[in-house]
């Protein structure tokens, strides 16, 4: 059962931030509510006041800007999945979004809410880490950019302050000689393991010039795994393929996998390695194609 709360509906980020500062701990931003209201219905948390940010104009656009895609934090999963701009420029994000939750949750849930809730069993954060994205957080006093590598602090804990509103996600478009994949596995409602891999090849598409590996869901938070990247960086694509098992082992261990109802830590580490290898093979085929 949902206990009574007050609703505030500011029409600017500044007003929202001021409300949040005024209420302190007893207020929370409400976007799609698909996470927040569940937690409140379960009685896990209660807030005296919810600040509906959906009346603030301009927070759900998807725009190209100087080699980046700027995604409004209030864009719903469904908007992202249906965006022609993203279908053309960042199909890996569209494919990931199509497989988030179910249709009704995608219809209402937002990307900003997904990231800020920092639920470990989620997809977008892992992909955004491999895409080297950043988010913009704004409050009454100004705005700042937070790189994804500094965004997730712990399970259910993101680096967004209480009176900050996440306004945008800024994603650099991958280069023409780069390929990106997100692969996940799960048999419950939410994903059990997710990996993202970004490989930028040299101009002749023979070697790995740069690489980003990210792992999510298996432990408390999504993270980049630089140690696994180091194994692959600078190698020919052939040699990198041979060393994927090693990189996968490192990524599996680095993910801080925990044993829970999704599976044992050992099992999840194995799945990470398998998914990463599959992602690499697909990327290699794309780069060759």
């Amino acid at each position: 059962m949902l206990r009574p709360f007050r609703l505030e509906e500011p029409d600017s980020v500044k007003a929202a931030s001021e409300s949040l500062a005024r209420y302190g701990d007893s207020a929370k931003i409400y976007a799609g509510g698909t996470e927040l209201l569940l937690a409140m219905k379960e009685g896990l948390v209660h807030f005296e006041c919810l600040v509906n940010v959906k009346k603030i104009p301009g927070l759900d656009g998807i725009d190209l800007d100087n080699g980046n895609v700027r995604i409004g934090a209030l864009s719903t999963h469904r908007q992202l999945e249906r965006s022609e701009t993203l279908q053309e420029k960042l199909p890996v994000l569209v494919e990931m979004e199509r497989n988030v939750a179910n249709l009704r949750v995608r219809e209402v849930g937002t990307l900003g809410g997904n990231l800020t809730f920092a639920e470990p069993h989620a997809d977008p954060g892992t992909l955004l880490l491999a895409l080297d994205a950043a988010v913009v957080a704004q409050k009454a006093g100004g705005s700042r950019e937070i790189p994804m590598t500094e965004f997730f602090v712990d399970a259910y804990d993101a680096a967004v302050e209480e009176d900050e509103v996440l306004t945008e996600i800024v994603v650099p478009l991958p280069a023409a000689n780069a390929a990106v994949r997100y692969r996940k596995f799960g048999y419950l409602e939410r994903p059990s393991a997710g990996v993202a891999l970004h490989v930028m090849a040299d101009a002749r598409r023979e070697s790995v010039q740069d690489v980003r590996v990210a792992v999510g869901c298996v432990g408390p938070k999504s993270m980049r795994v630089e140690e696994a990247e180091a194994v692959l960086r600078g190698k020919s694509l052939e040699e990198a393929a041979q060393r994927m098992a090693e990189a996968g082992d490192i990524a599996g261990r680095a993910g801080d996998a925990i044993s829970d109802l999704h599976g044992s830590a050992e099992y999840k580490e194995h799945i990470v390695k398998v998914l990463l290898t599959r992602a690499f093979n697909d990327i290699r085929a794309e780069l060759a194609g």
Binding site: L38, R104, V108
Partner: peptide, 23 residues
């Protein structure tokens, strides 16, 4: 009651939502 099953589905402006969790 947790947006999983779809028994509470209604269409709002033609789009499906879980009315069990939508204010």
């Amino acid at each position: 009651d947790v947006q999983v099953c779809g028994a509470c589905t209604v269409l709002v402006n033609g789009r499906p939502v879980s009315s069990c969790t939508l204010p």
